[in-house]
């Protein structure tokens, strides 16, 4: 669906002179360097990166809005710059910070326009329209001009808009930016459903790592324009999270620290959280120790937190 090979994108900063600023010499900035992506049908791929890492530039290159400096981009087997009409017909794009709706007219008018622009047949349009109306809860805002919608309402309407023509691949650039928890939940649930039931492929960038965790199975990590990871999201978390965490509900009958010196123990009322360095003890050993030292009501081995993983990658600059 989307195949990117050795993509490189450089921006040229021209010499600038101003009364108040010193002269800046002409320089080239590499926004993307050696990016490789092979997005298959039905895949949900997350693009993780700090601010200014090149995520939006990558989407723009993938869509043919920007020309790559070198490397190749193939969208549905075509060069999106040369065959824009064909490629855009098969994709849906949401830029969280910008709307695709015509802001001065009611949302329904934008939807009708999309039907004509993408030449969507009546049955497909009706099916998709009913689906987005129900799942994105658009009934109350469909007749309101986009200009008057709140950010969350506008985003729901925007996502609805790009699905009307039945795209095979969705590009979502920060789709939950600035939204409240309810709207985020609706959007995540909807996208997950779309990916699993309709087999719509998703390319997602987000700073909200819960979005990524809930929607995507695969991930690439970009830092300063360079691709530093490409693979399963779970693997990324397992490789990167250096701690195991177990959460226990139940009465304490002994001291776990006597069995496993060095583990971190946090206790609160009837709950205890034990965390330890992966290299020290295995999960099985600690669990068996827990059953000896606690009258366990409930026990949970917590998944490594993606926030923690990403924070480590970008703050400590660890390579993968």
């Amino acid at each position: 669906m989307l195949k990117i090979d050795e993509l490189e994108k450089c921006y040229r900063n021209k010499e600038k002179r101003s009364i108040f600023h010193t002269t800046k010499s002409k320089e080239e900035k590499k926004a993307l360097d050696g990016i490789n992506i092979d997005l298959k049908e039905g895949q949900a791929l997350a693009c993780i990166g700090e601010n200014g890492a090149g995520k939006s530039t990558l989407i723009k290159c993938a869509l043919g809005i920007l020309s790559p400096t070198s490397g190749s981009v193939r969208l549905f087997g075509e060069d999106p710059r040369r065959n824009k009409k064909y490629c855009m017909q098969k994709v849906g794009v949401v830029f969280g910070q910008k709307t695709n709706l015509w802001i001065d007219i009611p949302v329904i008018e934008s939807y009708k326009a999309v039907k004509q622009i993408y030449k969507v047949d009546n049955d497909t349009f009706k099916r998709n329209y009913e689906m987005v109306m129900e799942l994105l809860e658009l009934k109350d805002i469909i007749d309101v001009p986009a200009r008057r919608l709140s950010l969350g309402q506008r985003m729901r309407a925007d996502i609805g808009l790009v699905l009307l023509h039945g795209p095979e691949l969705l590009f979502m650039d920060e789709p939950t930016l600035g939204l409240d928890i309810n709207v985020k939940y609706t959007i995540r649930k909807f996208l997950r459903q779309l990916n699993q039931q309709e087999k719509t492929s998703i390319f997602l960038t987000s700073h909200d790592l819960d979005d990524i965790d809930e929607i995507c199975d695969d991930a690439i990590v970009i830092s300063k324009g360079k691709q530093i990871y490409s693979g399963k999201l779970d693997e990324l978390k397992n490789v990167y999270a250096d701690k195991h965490i177990i959460k226990i509900s139940g009465m304490k009958t002994g001291n776990i620290l006597s069995l496993f010196p060095g583990v971190e123990l946090t206790e609160k009322e009837n709950q205890s959280i034990i965390s330890w360095d992966k290299s020290c003890y295995s999960v099985q050993d600690v669990i068996s120790g827990v059953f000896r030292m606690y009258a366990v009501d409930d026990i949970e081995v917590r998944e490594p937190d993606i926030d923690e993983v990403v924070s480590r990658i970008f703050t400590e600059g660890v390579s993968i």
């Binding site: 723009k60 869509l63 809005i65 824009k84 009409k85 855009m88 830029f95 910008k98 622009i117």
Partner: peptide, 13 residues
């Protein structure tokens, strides 16, 4: 304001 990008992703010139 950057909204021009929506014109660039429609299947029309």
């Amino acid at each position: 304001n950057g909204t021009v990008v929506s014109k660039m992703i429609r299947p029309t010139t």
